[in-house]
Amino acid sequence: MDERQQAAVAAQLAELRQAYLARLPAELAALQSLAADLGGGEADRARLDELRHRLHKLAGSGGTFGLAALSAAARTLEQRVKGWLAGGLAELDDGQVRQALAAGLAALGASLSENDHPASLARGHASPPSADEANEVWLIEDDALLGEELARQLGAFSYRVRLFTRLDDAERAAQTGRPDLLLMDVMFDEEGKNATESFARHLGLRALACPLFFISAHDDFLSRVRAARLGAPVTLAMIDIDHLKSVNDTYGHAAGDVVISAVAMLLHQRLRRSDIIGRYGGEEFAAVLPECDAALYVAKRSGRNQVQEARPV
């Protein structure tokens, strides 16, 4: 498929997604009204069955359109309703249990991120970047399932992702195209050689000027993917050192390097041991913060004097 076809597919997908987002509020309202009609007793069975079915569809369709949090929340509610259907409805005679279900359904809308709301799409400037201006990430990962999951998650953040399961394929692609970021599984062996060694022989890939990320701690990363599937938040924070240029200009680059390593040291001290931090560009750091949903977490913990800005990606 050439770039034009790819863009055409992306455009149609974006259209489907937008139509879906437009229909979503009505569906969420229908779920809430179904829950509001529950009154306890056997009469609820048909309504619960309908709820279970619609939550299942919502979990599936939400996931398809990259709404991971909505999908996970719907899946959790689906399991709860399924439990009631299987184990008897007595629990639902308790008004508080019904209220909790209604609250859970009401919270589904809140699990949509700011960008996913149809209203914010209509604002134009807040809509996700179009296929043309989206950052392109090349992902080299030999585990197809994991690769697809990562690609899907990155896609949810409006990155264009090309997945390669072999280094040679990426090398060929590097002859003609260039990504904004290269993301590579380090625990991946090709012909008995570790990927990092093979990478050194791929001159086309090495010549790319974009940042290169290695996915290390393979098992740990899998658990994070799983955590994301279950709805546990993972925050990716970009940390930028302001005014580094003036330090470089005034005191020289050696002094600038001292500042960078001091900031790195500071981040290592202030972040949790489970957090991962790496240098992203000249004056930027990227941090992966599992089980953390506060976008301001980094700013809070690092102290505002040293780190001025933490913006979620």
């Binding site: 790819q6 599936g60 996931g63 398809t64 690609a151 899907r152 992702v161 997945l163």
Partner: peptide, 16 residues
């Protein structure tokens, strides 16, 4: 095939 799937790679996955 795992759901949700990636629309850009579904066809190649099926072919594989």
């Amino acid at each position: 095939i795992a759901k949700p799937f990636d629309p850009m790679t579904l066809a190649s996955r099926v072919r594989a």
